[in-house]
Design a protein around this nucleic acid. Structure first.
Lengths: 184, 184
DNA sequence: ATCTGCATGTAACACGTTACATGATTTT
DNA sequence: AAAATCATGTAACGTGTTACATGCAGAT
């Protein structure tokens, strides 16, 4: 139910279209949540049907028409309840296909195994670079939606989490390559 | 397709029942992949229908009857292809509900926000403890299935990855709590 | 001239979870 | 006496991906 509550959460900062929501997810929140337009529009439909959001049609001349979504009071309640009914252990259990491959990496010859880890390290590097972009979009988002409170402290903390993870991942990659090189 | 290839991969070490596969996932591979029995049995059905695995029925007296699955040649080919057709960027994009909550944590009063991070840190601590168990089950698995090669180097690397991640997460949690405490 | 951005959606499929169902044996 | 282990499965549901469809405006 995280996407649902993510949408509701973003709408607490102001009216947004499906397209804008998608953009925000795939920039500011990109490190921990990607979305597809198809999913966003379906979810917005569901939210509207449940009365958690409502929309205002806006006819545009030189652009396609929009639906500006805003959160309802019922939506705000639902969003608050999300924090009350959360439980930590469920949230942390991950699925990581990369590690599934590492588990079976003996299938590859040594040099290819090392190369595989090297690629991973490169990917982490580019992940770190993307976090820099996220930092910028966060600043833009705050001023664009005139967010007065210090929510951005928390937005930055998610980015910081990414930095910690990517840096640790790269250290792990170095460790892993060393181990593989030393094996018979 | 990671579960499918995970099952095929485990079966390269020897014959296993659905139940044993489930046990192995939820112990040795638990850090990065949890499964439910329902999913395992469905996937085994599919794999059998595709001719990637086959099974041998074993009638037991004081226990329910079993199906001992083994990988076919076709299954081995499919498993090898998994490494060839993989691409890194797809594998690394994560969904993290915990970070979704962090993003919106301004919704909670300061003390509750700090408590939330504290709970996370505790969860990481217990994750680290579980990794110790995983280390043991890996050793048992190797001797039980008489694995002669040094695959276990890679198994251990997945555990090490977990250690790096949990430790970095806990450092992040400390950093986050400090930031929140200092905010107005 | 081609690509990117804006803006909306539908349909089919793949993957994963929840809940249900059974039943003997062994451990606490 | 209660709970965990062994061992199999079905059905319904929820979530996410892939592929398809449209079409103008502005930038390269």
């Amino acid at each position: 139910m995280a996407l649902k509550h993510g949408i509701l959460g973003l709408l607490t900062y102001g009216e947004m279209t499906g397209y804008e929501l998608m953009k925000t997810f795939n920039s500011s929140l990109a490190y921990f949540w990607h979305v597809r337009t198809s999913q966003i529009y379906l979810e917005l439909d569901n939210l509207a049907k449940s009365g958690l959001v409502e929309f205002r049609k806006e006819i545009q001349e030189s652009r396609p028409n929009k639906k500006n979504f805003k959160i309802t009071n019922k939506g705000r309640e639902e969003f608050k309840d999300w924090f009350k009914n959360s439980n930590m252990d469920k949230m942390l259990n991950i699925k990581n296909e990369f590690l599934m491959m590492i588990f079976f990496l003996n299938e590859l010859p040594k040099n290819e195994a090392i190369n595989f880890i090297k690629q991973y390290k490169e990917e982490c590097k580019s992940g770190l670079a993307d976090l820099e972009k996220a930092k910028n979009t966060i600043v833009e988002f705050k001023s664009f939606y005139h967010v007065e409170n210090d929510s951005d402290i928390y937005w930055s903390l998610t980015v910081k989490h990414g930095e910690f993870m990517y840096e640790a991942s790269m250290k792990w990659a170095d460790y892993a390559m060393k181990i593989i090189k030393n094996k018979t």
